[in-house]
Design a protein around this nucleic acid. Structure first.
Length: 847
RNA sequence: GGGUGAUUAGCUCAGUUGGCUAGAGCACCGCAUUUACACUGCGGGUGUCGGGGGUUCGAGUCCCUCAUCACCCACCA
């Protein structure tokens, strides 16, 4: 035998992948219907985790499936420079070396991170290979590749020219540790107990959580209808503060909730989003108090140089001394924004940044979503995306970090309002027409450049010798729910804006792989599962099937190693089916035309036909798990447990070989390595790849003959049950006048583990509605069967009652479809026949 | 405050336009060493489909309501 007793993935996987890659199996053939997926690029700096296993498994199953359907498939791999993410990882390393990013210029930092990423980049490429991903490596794209940077620039330029980009001084979510701004979506809000301080504030008493921003107060606000304070509105008041008196204006604004605190709010336009808006409404003075490093500036007087938290304490102390502190509510909870990376409290900070006007980009996106032009899996994500797009604010794309694509904009050193677009970002200073321009030191938000990913990777609108651009738009965008808003929404908007086409036909959102106990996996908790050791232990196919099995779109689900183990067993099952068939092939080399001969031959072909339809339907609708279960049950329950067992008494070698090949092709997307390994081992023609085989047609079969075997199956199960229940085996089986039972006598004897199968009658009658047959079992033993029969009788009677009730209902007869009524009648007839045979048999025991 | 999803066997979950006695895997119990496989085979049973109401001949599925949980969005001094 060529195949050893058990499948050992480790011995084959690397060679099989190399064989695929060498043969160019993953490159599109370019001459048939195209199917394309661009993989969401993983961060270039790290190792792949179990979530990547899920995402690449789903994408690869889709890709291999469409290849087997005969389509030209392109699966594009990539890597993400992941701007801020990567810089954070690198900074942590610097800290370990006792350094900080502020020891370097942005240029130095950029080149250091570049080297750092280059070191790690091979890592995940080899990991993707281990996962068996059938991607086209020649098409590998990095988010800092020239073509991606060029796209970012041309997109920025187009928006600049069309007035969608503006530079503005706005309050920005700002992390004082990383010293960069963030988009709204990047801020993590957390519930926290924040002391609420009640202060004496001129004639008012007011509540605040941020006494340290007092130095930036330029107004106090009350509700317009609040009679208590009406007389102060419009006046400018002198307020006694910790650093002496200062003046504020009293304004009336709807934003104030008269029932919260004292109904009076101090307004600090430079350091609060709401206050900023109020400031704009009332033309208030903006006074900055906090520096970019999180310390207070000269406005704070003697508190200058303190951090926000230090100053809060000190100011509260000072207020107390001056008798300005009325009380403190320690139980007040509110939600505070944090940096999602370092957990520092986000400061609203007044900054000049580049913004993209979103309304005109979002509108067309909302339109195509509402028109249902993109199919979402699950469907509900579409409405969520629409709701998100409808509430979108302008997008801050400036980041004050080094690791990213420099913004191609230069500012006139003599005229701050004079900005020019120029791609010579290698230069810090440009001189144009005698004017001096300095480059904006900022870089783009990573999501800005990655929004172009579908059309940029596929060279949309460009002359392209490889003709990859015909794969745009993508067939599928497969990704995790966490980037529906930051990425999918923006790819959609920019795709429409730049290409005029919807960038993907379908969006599939997968859920998270949670830890085994259902909690979130996290490095700090230490409950992450590293896919590589799992692959090492169980094989790549096993992990793939184990992770997709029982998982549906957007549902978070715990990782379960037992599933992986079962999937490993499934690989071994396939292996041993092949092993059996191959063994028989050596002993029995009859050639001829493959065809169904016996009932079971026809039956297995009908099952094969069903599983194929089932698999195609499910995968066309991205029901990965159900498609897998279909092939799993076909292989295990039908092919192995029934057909191969049956073939031991009625061998049809050519059909076995046909079934093996058909099964391998069907199972290949789910278990690429083991199926290809089997194929390569039994064929010895390495140019004939299973990975490139298409689904074949199903041989013709006779439905009636297939049905005959169904009946035999039922009978065999019944006999097995009786023998188990009575603890006997190898009993003699008798039948009366049945051609089917006569022709299948040997088969039934084998499958039901009987002693003999003969015409005649025994003392224990089998209550099967299709056949009159019996077992020869001594009466003492058979007596035990009475209780089994009684149970059966009760169940059957209940069933009959149910059916009769249904048929006695006139409305049912009138309103239900005729077919269904007919079916119910048939069921009742069968059930009654069955009941009678049980009753007749039972009578024997009551004597 | 707004939104979305979930609640089905001991556990993890399927159940596509309402219609065959509600399923799968695991776990569990029993039997089996028969030449593909113990990473095995055979047999076994378990559910007031979260509660309540409604529509219908018929509801796990549709509608209303309540409860619990999860996630997302907006963020109040």
């Amino acid at each position: 035998m060529k195949l050893p007793k058990a499948y050992e993935p480790k011995l084959y996987e690397a060679d099989i992948y190399a064989l695929w890659e060498k043969s160019g199996a993953f490159q599109p053939t370019n001459d048939k219907v195209g199917y394309s997926i661009v993989m969401p690029p993983p961060n270039a700096n790290g190792n792949l985790h179990i979530g990547h296993e899920l995402t690449s498994a789903l994408e690869d199953i889709a890709a291999r499936y469409h290849r087997a359907k005969g389509e030209s498939v392109l699966l594009v791999p990539g890597a993400d420079h992941a701007g801020f993410e990567t810089q954070s990882v690198f900074e942590k390393q610097l800290v370990k070396e006792g350094k900080s990013r502020f020891d370097f210029s942005r240029e130095e930092l950029y080149s250091k991170i570049w080297d750092f990423v280059a070191l790690n980049r091979d890592n995940f490429e080899s990991q993707l290979r281990k996962m068996g991903v059938s991607c086209d490596w020649q098409h590998f794209t990095f988010t800092l590749d020239k073509k991606i940077v060029d796209r970012a620039y041309s997109t920025f330029k187009k928006m600049w020219d069309e007035g969608l980009i503006y530079r503005g001084e706005r309050l920005v979510n700002y992390c004082t540790f990383h010293q960069t701004g963030f988009a709204d979506i990047e801020v993590v809000y957390k519930e926290a107990k924040t002391p609420l301080y009640y202060l004496k504030y001129g004639p008012f008493e007011l509540a605040t959580t941020r006494p340290e921003t007092k130095f930036g107060d330029t107004a106090v606000a009350v509700h317009p209808d609040d009679k208590r304070y009406r007389k102060y509105v419009g006046r400018v008041l002198e307020i006694e503060g910790v650093n002496g008196p200062f003046s504020v204006q009293v304004i009336a604004d709807e934003m104030v909730d008269p029932n919260f605190g004292t109904g009076v709010v101090k307004i600090t336009p430079a350091h609060s989003f709401d206050d900023w808006e109020a400031g704009k409404r009332h033309n208030l003075e903006v006074k900055r108090v906090i520096n970019h490093d999180g310390t207070l500036n000269h406005q704070a007087g003697r508190f200058e140089g303190m951090t926000v938290m230090e100053a809060r304490k000190a100011v509260v102390e000072a207020l107390k001394e001056k008798g300005l502190l009325v009380k403190v509510d320690e139980n007040y909870t509110n939600r505070v924004g944090h940096c999602y990376k370092c957990d520092t409290i986000i400061e609203p900070m007044l900054m000049e940044q580049w913004f993209i006007e979103m309304e005109s980009l979002a509108k067309p996106a909302i339109k195509v979503l509402k028109e249902g032009k993109i199919t979402f899996y699950p469907e509900s994500k579409k409405d969520q995306l629409i709701a998100y797009l409808q509430g979108l604010k302008d997008w801050n794309i400036s980041r004050q970090i080094a690791w990213g694509i420099p913004i191609p904009a230069f500012q006139n050193v003599d005229d701050p309002d004079d900005w020019i677009y120029d791609e010579r970002v290698g230069e810090e200073i440009l001189t144009i027409n005698g004017k001096t321009y300095r480059r904006d030191p900022d870089v783009f938000d990573t999501w800005f450049s990655s929004s172009s990913w579908p059309y940029a990777t596929l060279n949309f609108g460009e002359k392209d010798s490889s003709d990859f651009n015909k794969f745009y738009p993508l067939s599928l965008m497969e990704t995790g729910g966490e980037i529906l808003y930051p990425w999918v929404s923006r790819m959609l908007m920019l795709g429409l804006y730049i290409t005029g086409e919807i960038p993907f036909e379908a969006v599939y959102i997968h859920g998270y792989v949670m830890a085994e106990d259902g909690s979130k996996m996290s490095k700090s908790v230490g409950n992450v599962v590293d896919p590589l050791p799992v692959i090492e232990k169980y094989g790549s196919d096993a992990l793939r099937m184990g992770i997709i099995w029982g998982r549906s779109a957007a549902v978070n689900r715990g990782y379960d190693e037992r599933r992986v183990e079962e999937a490993r067993n499934f690989c071994n099952k396939l292996w041993n089916i092949a092993r059996y068939i191959e063994d028989k092939s050596n002993k029995n080399s009859i050639r001829g035309e493959v065809q169904a001969v016996t009932g079971v031959d026809n039956w297995i072909l009908s099952k094969l036909s069903n599983v194929k339809v089932n698999l195609l339907t499910n995968l066309d609708n991205y029901n990965f798990s159900e498609a897998f279960e279909a092939i799993y049950h076909f292989v295990w329950d039908d092919l192995a447990d029934w057909y191969i067992e049956a073939s031991k008494s009625e061998p049809n070698q050519l059909l076995l070989e046909y079934l093996l090949e058909s099964t391998l092709v069907l199972a290949h997307p789910f278990a690429p390595f083991v199926t290809e390994t089997i194929w390569q081992t039994i064929n010895e023609d390495s140019s004939d790849l299973l990975a490139l085989k298409q689904f074949n047609g199903i041989l013709p079969y006779d439905k009636n003959k297939a049905q005959e075997f169904n009946e035999i199956q039922t009978l065999v199960s019944e006999i097995r049950y009786i023998q188990k229940a009575l603890k006997v085996s190898k009993t003699a089986f008798f039948y009366e006048d049945s051609i089917i039972l006569e022709t299948n006598a040997d088969l039934i004897k084998k499958l039901a583990n009987l002693g003999s199968v003969k015409k005649g009658s025994g003392n224990l009658k089998i209550t099967n509605p299709k056949f009159i047959c019996s077992l020869d079992i001594s009466s003492e033993i058979a007596d035990n069967y009475a209780s089994e029969l009684e149970l059966k009788l009760t169940k059957q009677q209940a069933y009959i009652n149910q059916l009769e009730a249904r048929l006695n209902n006139k409305s049912y007869i009138q309103n239900a479809p005729a077919d269904l009524v007919k079916q119910t009648k048939e069921q009742l007839r069968e059930a009654k026949a069955n009941l009678i045979s049980i009753q007749i048999e039972l009578e024997k025991y009551s004597v």
